[in-house]
């Protein structure tokens, strides 16, 4: 083997070994995706969501019935091979109506979230970026508006404006954007004082560039989470309004109105309430766990 002399020869540093980066570097969103995929509950929610959306698209075509044709000879039928989810008091097929309702509920949820997004990002972004007086005034206005109890306002607007898809979305978003605007403002305020933004400013970047390159992309995370969590709350509001008798007008099917119709018959025809109810819960659940999972995946503190 080696002689003692060789062994005790000075060979010096071998920095390449010490400097090697042991973890492969990942882009931020790739990293987020990997962490999200490890979250079993969130993945379950995502799969559930995919199924629900698939059924909302194709479900209504899977039977020979449509959602609005009455069949008074077949009313209040329990679930069977003929009518998978039974029929309601006018003999309409509950399966078709449930998925028809899914379309409406998911549409309302997504539409409300998108409108909140646009107003909220604009309002919060401007307030946070301008700062000073503008910020003070804009956020004060938001504070006062948010002092109005949300559901009471929505109820009031529905009573006054009349029932319909458009009025419902309008009622939901009239103060719904405030939460989003606060989050965007907070993000922008925090980010704009970060050194890399200052550095970019020193290098002569203009407002549009700073907004587009630094502020918006870096606040995407919280914005996405808020959006994901707005959808279930809008679906909840729709169901709630339906349950109060302020939902969509018949024969349109929404989960809220179906549940409301089913309630008086709970004792004898429970399926008429249970099917819409279960799908309301499943949808809200799926969006909630996906939103939670996203938030956890985006939180760098949970990084290992």
């Amino acid at each position: 083997m080696q002689s003692t002399n060789d062994k005790f020869k000075v060979v010096g540093t071998q920095l390449s070994d010490a400097e090697k980066i042991s973890k492969p570097s990942l882009s931020f969103w790739k990293d987020v995706f990997i962490r999200f995929r490890k979250n079993k509950l969130a993945m379950f929610g995502l799969v559930l969501l995919a199924i629900l959306i698939f059924m909302a698209i194709f479900g209504p075509y899977m039977t020979e019935y449509d959602y609005k044709t009455n069949d008074l000879t077949n009313k209040n039928q329990p679930p069977s091979a003929e009518h998978w989810f039974g029929t309601d008091d006018l003999g309409r097929d509950m399966f078709t109506r449930t998925w028809e309702g899914a379309r409406i509920s998911i549409f309302i949820g997504v539409a409300a979230a998108l409108i909140d997004l646009f107003i909220g990002v604009a309002w919060g972004g401007i307030a946070g970026y301008k700062g000073g007086r503008t910020d003070e005034t804009m956020m004060r206005a938001a504070d006062i508006l948010s002092g109005i109890p949300y559901l009471l306002l929505v109820i009031l607007l529905m009573v006054v404006l009349g029932q319909g898809l458009g009025t419902m979305i309008l009622a939901m978003t009239i103060t719904g954007w405030i939460n989003m605007s606060r989050i965007v403002r907070g993000q922008v305020l925090m980010l704009k004082s970060q050194e890399y933004v200052l550095a970019s400013k020193t290098l002569g970047a203009n407002t549009t560039r700073i907004m587009g390159k630094h502020l918006i992309p870096n606040s995407m995370g919280p914005i996405l989470v808020t959006m994901t969590l707005t959808v279930p709350s809008a679906i909840f509001t729709e169901a709630y309004l339906g349950f109060l008798g302020l939902g969509l007008t018949p024969p349109l099917a929404s989960w809220g109105t179906m549940a409301n119709d089913g309630l008086p018959a709970l004792r004898y025809y429970p399926w008429r309430l249970f099917f819409p109810a279960i799908f309301i819960c499943l949808t809200i659940f799926a969006f909630n766990v996906v939103g939670d999972g996203l938030r956890d995946a985006l939180d760098p503190r949970s990084r290992k």
């Binding site: 080696q2 010096g12 540093t13 920095l15 010490a18």
Partner: peptide
């Protein structure tokens, strides 16, 4: 001192300081 401390998930064989040590001996790596 050049370099960074070793990753203690897999401590290096020999003297942990050797890679950053300009006086490291051959035996330090073994």
């Amino acid at each position: 001192i050049p370099g960074t401390p070793p990753d203690l998930t897999n401590p290096p064989v020999g003297d942990a300081f050797a890679p950053r040590n300009k006086y490291a001996l051959a035996i330090d790596y073994e």
